[in-house]
Each structure stands twice: as structure tokens, then as C-alpha cells.
């Protein structure tokens, strides 16, 4: 029961973050400079999510172990940059990761 309550609570706060401005705050005025800055939410979020995952988590001491991930990630990024193709980048990235790791 406790487990279900915590899961439902977690679902609720997650939903509230998603609905925050679309449903509840649709009329809340934001300063124009903030409105204009929102187009940078995408690059800032995706970088803040992905980069720490490439770097493992052991800091500088563990950098050697991160090298296969970094090479695979860089190659995948190059494929996306050139061909805008996520599945192809996944094949290249996973392939290199398996070869080097």
C-alpha cells in the first residue's frame, strides 16, 4: 500500500511539472527575456541529461573507462549532424561501443 501511494505521488508531481504552464500557468506572464530564452531549454536539457551519462560517474580517475563511450558518442553525434538519422546513429554508436568496450 505504501509502495502504491509513493508511486502515485511520484506520478502526480511528474504530471504537475508537465501541466504546469500548459494547463495551470497558461496566463501567467513571464518577462519577455525569459520567454525568448525558452528556446534554449532543448539544448540545455538534452546536454545536461546526456553528457554526464557518457562520463560514467567516477570523475577524472575513471576517465580511461569512459573513452569507449566518448568515442562511440562522438561518432553517433557526427552521424546525426550529417544525416539527421537517429536509428543510424544508434547502430554506429552501439556498434563502436561493443567493439571498443
Amino acid at each position: 500500500m505504501r509502495f502504491w501511494l509513493i508511486i502515485i505521488g511520484s506520478g502526480l508531481v511528474t504530471y504537475l511539472t508537465r501541466a504546469s504552464f500548459i494547463v495551470f500557468g497558461d496566463k501567467v506572464p513571464l518577462p519577455p527575456v525569459v520567454e525568448r530564452s525558452l528556446k534554449y531549454v532543448a539544448p540545455a536539457s538534452f546536454a545536461a541529461i546526456s553528457v554526464p551519462l557518457f562520463l560514467g560517474g567516477d570523475g577524472i580517475a575513471g576517465f580511461g573507462e569512459d573513452i569507449p563511450r566518448i568515442i562511440a558518442g562522438a561518432a553517433a553525434a557526427a552521424v546525426i549532424w550529417r544525416w539527421k538519422n537517429i536509428p543510424a546513429s544508434l547502430v554506429v554508436g552501439m556498434g563502436l561501443f561493443w567493439l571498443l568496450g
Binding site: K39, Y40, A42, P43, A44, F46, A47, I49, S50, V51, L53, F54, R69, A72, G73, A76, A77, I80, W81, K84, I86, S89, L90, G93, M94, F97
Partner: peptide, 24 residues
């Protein structure tokens, strides 16, 4: 490992100008 690859890909797709790169 597909997870960082996915979000890394979304990152590349979302980069359109210099301030965007600074954001990243």
C-alpha cells in the same frame, strides 16, 4: 548505452545557433 546516445542525438538536433551551443 542507448539512453545517452538518444539524448546526445536530440542534443545535436536541437543545436541551431551560437547561444544554443553555449546553453549546451
Amino acid at each position: 548505452f542507448a539512453v545517452p546516445l538518444l539524448f546526445g542525438g536530440l542534443l545535436v538536433l536541437s543545436l541551431r545557433d551560437f547561444p544554443g551551443m553555449v546553453a549546451a
